[in-house]
Design a protein around this nucleic acid. Sequence first.
DNA 1: CTGAAAGCGCTTACAG
DNA 2: CTGAAAGCGCTTACAG
Lengths: 339, 339
Amino acid sequence: MATLTEIARRAGVSVSVASRVLNGDPNLRTRPETRERVVQAAKDLNYTANYAGRALRLARSKALALIVPDVSTPLFADLLAGAADASGEQDHTLLLGRSDRVTAGGDLVRRLVGEGRVDGFVLQRSDDLSDQALENLVANDARIVLVASRTPRRRGSVVLDDVAGGRLATEHLLALGHRRVALIGGVERSDIARRREQGYTEALHDAGLRKRDAWVTRLGYSPDVAAAAARSLMATSPAPTAIVVANVNGAIGALTALRQGGFDIPGDVSVIAIHDQWMAAHTWPPLTTVKMPFYEVGYLAVRLLLDQLAGAPAEDIVVRDPAPLLILRESTGAPNSAV
Amino acid sequence: MATLTEIARRAGVSVSVASRVLNGDPNLRTRPETRERVVQAAKDLNYTANYAGRALRLARSKALALIVPDVSTPLFADLLAGAADASGEQDHTLLLGRSDRVTAGGDLVRRLVGEGRVDGFVLQRSDDLSDQALENLVANDARIVLVASRTPRRRGSVVLDDVAGGRLATEHLLALGHRRVALIGGVERSDIARRREQGYTEALHDAGLRKRDAWVTRLGYSPDVAAAAARSLMATSPAPTAIVVANVNGAIGALTALRQGGFDIPGDVSVIAIHDQWMAAHTWPPLTTVKMPFYEVGYLAVRLLLDQLAGAPAEDIVVRDPAPLLILRESTGAPNSAV
DNA sequence: CTGAAAGCGCTTACAG
DNA sequence: CTGAAAGCGCTTACAG
């Protein structure tokens, strides 16, 4: 790899000048011809500034990390794409880490910033972690923005409009004529789950209906857990005629359980999920979903992070644009027996 | 962040000594008590060596990158986990990049190594790229190992035993009594696709059967494309009674198309896929698959990369252990009409 | 057993 | 308009 010194020698200038023209220093006054020689030399030698040298001098790595608990769902790809695009636009490199380690990312965060490998983080918490534990772990550090989930006290976050998502899903079912609408929710400690349930509750309330405890589960999003939840829901009496599942992967599991239980969908029960992903078009029946703007969450999170790194105050953003979008497929329909 | 100088001062030693005890220099002879003071000081100040300083001095970043074309499939998570584990064991940080850019990763590779941000790469090529183009892009650089797919001339790769995978899938169908077995394969330029087809062909041949051109498609792995392939296969006459789909995501698409076409699975057609992922248990019917050791590919790839970086000759590895594994679910059965 | 010094590649005030 | 020099934090041969 060519160094600045070599470029300078080849162009017949000092390294100072070489550095300045290559970095586009606005205070630099130079003959066009000199500048030209430097640029040409850099091109000839295929020069890229050594990152360690620059980082050492600037005390800035120009790298950001995205830390997520689960990399195995297509949803993550949207988040990553958004974060990567924003990073690229601002001339930063984006690294990726998993936070499924014991300390839920705290260790990783400390190590990466401690070493100066990255300037800041976008962190998606794992549901295993309590608000308190998370706050202790990451404190109110401007170098960290939380994504998807937030805590009561910590500043610096960007989340989906989960209330609107839960509401839209529920309203769709209500509009179809359902009156017995259940919810397969996330775990209690998850604020995502709480906000989606809030949307569900509000929609019910607006329709003059009351939330029934027997019709909401708060066991989590994994396919197996949601499958068990669906079975228990259908065992209540009267059973619901429609279910909103707070997460698409859970909905896929619920569908399997319902089918195995002999239920016709949507004849016996309608199912709608929050979040969309390609698989939803390939379940049986194809799953009606509410698409949430996860790309935008990733995008805005790195924008916010970079702003905070530049000294701007921490913000807490709810992504309302684009709004949650109903993707109509075949798992929802009018209730069979208008009660 | 504390620096080495601060540690040294606090411990009352020179930075040389501090550096050496912290790095466990075996040539260092020191009083246990001195060593103790340094360790304590580092702990007190929560010291982590600044990475840029070290990288600059050592001309080694101790970071590796994994570059993949698609991050949105659960298969990728296995590859990543393997690569991350191997990196961690060898005290390296693993970064992630997508290669779905114009230059299919060439740019990214050049930039990251050019800057010295990473010491080497594990690269999964995109199928969009020809062997020739890939070879030109990455040449025979010891800092790059290819994963999943390889090219005729380039050295340094680790791939699955795709022949065995294709063979196992086909043999399962044959053992069930099928004689009209079709293949939904990948694109022609993909060597993965070629090897899987080879396994299919061999299994047919061993059973005294000949491959029929009308029963093999080579259109690719995406769910939509495989769906179209399934439709066209079922329109041949006689139609196949069983299909091996060379990729699980494609199989999910094929299942949807067959179901929509009114075919009973496995009554009218059996379907088996190569690769397993959680979704396969939630399709309708649940999909029989051949599980391939993708975690191990990731793991061995970084081992190989680190060896190459240390000067070992390039190798081309086929992961045979664990062997492809049949995961029996409900999409395969005996043919309805024993012809 | 321990320390002073050089140097990795870079940027930037400062001097001319 | 251009250059010499300092210094970011680290490791390591070398000297004592």
